[in-house]
Amino acid sequence: MTIEAGAVALAAGDWAVAIDPARGAAVTRLAFAGQDLLADEPAFWMIPWANRLDGGRLGRHRLPVNRPQDGTAIHGLSRDRPWQVAAQAPDSATLAQEVDAAPYRYAARLGIRVTPDAVTLDLAIVNLGEEALPFGAGWHPWFRRPPGTWLGFRATHRCRHDARTLPVAADLVRGLSGGEEAFLGLDTHFTGWDGAARIAWPGLALALEATGALATNLQVYAPRDRAVLCVEPCSHLPDAPNRPDLADLGPMRLLGPGEILTGRISMTAECSHLP
């Protein structure tokens, strides 16, 4: 995968990571032992909400509808705005962003650390506004999906959704475990996630562990027409402010002025075979 000009390139041990500040601090390369784990799509951040808000509705506020085909405001505000590099070393970097887009005014800080053992992404969001507002976050990686890809994780509920992938009900589950027969065609939200997921490709496996606000909900997207697998740690249910009957399965966090939302994602990898 080509690293674009201006990207922050980090490496340690078998890991190589690139972050593009101009593209919303997206991870544009994630490689282990010379093998790219991401498809040709940036792994972007969803801040201050993840996934969709129906009609852009957030209480009395209205956010810009940026997905007109289904009338939703999708994936937040941070991914379309540049970040600044606050600090950089060969194996670590800190990026920062301030957003002022009514009703939101917030600062986000992303710390990336690469060691021989793991890649760690630390996210913090502080409400700089003068009123309390619902906040959320998520990470949207586009992992490659060659034949033989396997995914496994534990969760308590799997959402049923309408044609716009907005949740309408939830069923009890134990999680998901299997190859394409288990996940192909999903654009599905899971709640009660325990923060751990494993993706295995022939000869390589990735363990993802989320903590803090990012460790409760998981969106899985595996379109039939593209060889990608999105496994997205999220802090809340899609459209949670407008789904009172389901919001307990993943509410957004009400942050008062100066309050902070934090979450961490850690990834380890090993050469392996399918489980």
Rank of each mutant, 00 (worst) to 15 (best):
L38I: 08
D70Y: 04
R105C: 13
A87F: 08
E270C: 09
A227N: 10
R52D: 10
L95C: 04
E181S: 14
P244I: 00
I19W: 08
E259Q: 14
A155Q: 03
F32E: 01
M267W: 14
S92L: 07
H273I: 15
P257F: 12
T191L: 02
V228A: 12
A240N: 00
A33I: 04
L214H: 08
G56C: 11
H157P: 00
L53C: 03
R145F: 12
F143R: 09
A213S: 14
S78H: 09
N127S: 10
F190W: 13
A9M: 13
S235N: 01
C159Y: 01
L166D: 01
R158S: 03
D36V: 04
E180P: 15
Q84K: 06
R109N: 03
L166Y: 00
Q35W: 08
V85F: 07
W150M: 05
A11E: 09
P257H: 07
A102C: 11
G148F: 14
V27W: 11
L37E: 08
G212H: 12
E232P: 09
D54I: 00
P251L: 05
D80I: 13
R67S: 10
W150E: 11
L53K: 05
P116I: 01
G55K: 02
R226Y: 05
C271Y: 10
Y104W: 14
A196C: 13
T188N: 00
F153Y: 11
F183E: 00
H140S: 08
P146L: 04
H236P: 05
L206P: 09
V99F: 06
W142H: 15
P21S: 05
P21W: 10
E130L: 15
D162E: 02
D117A: 14
T191M: 02
G203P: 10
V231C: 06
E130G: 13
T216C: 14
C234T: 12
G136F: 11
W142I: 09
M46Y: 01
I19H: 05
G256P: 03
A101K: 06
R144K: 13
G152H: 12
S266L: 10
C230M: 03
P42V: 06
P134V: 00
R264F: 10
F135V: 00
A182N: 07
V27Q: 08
A50K: 03
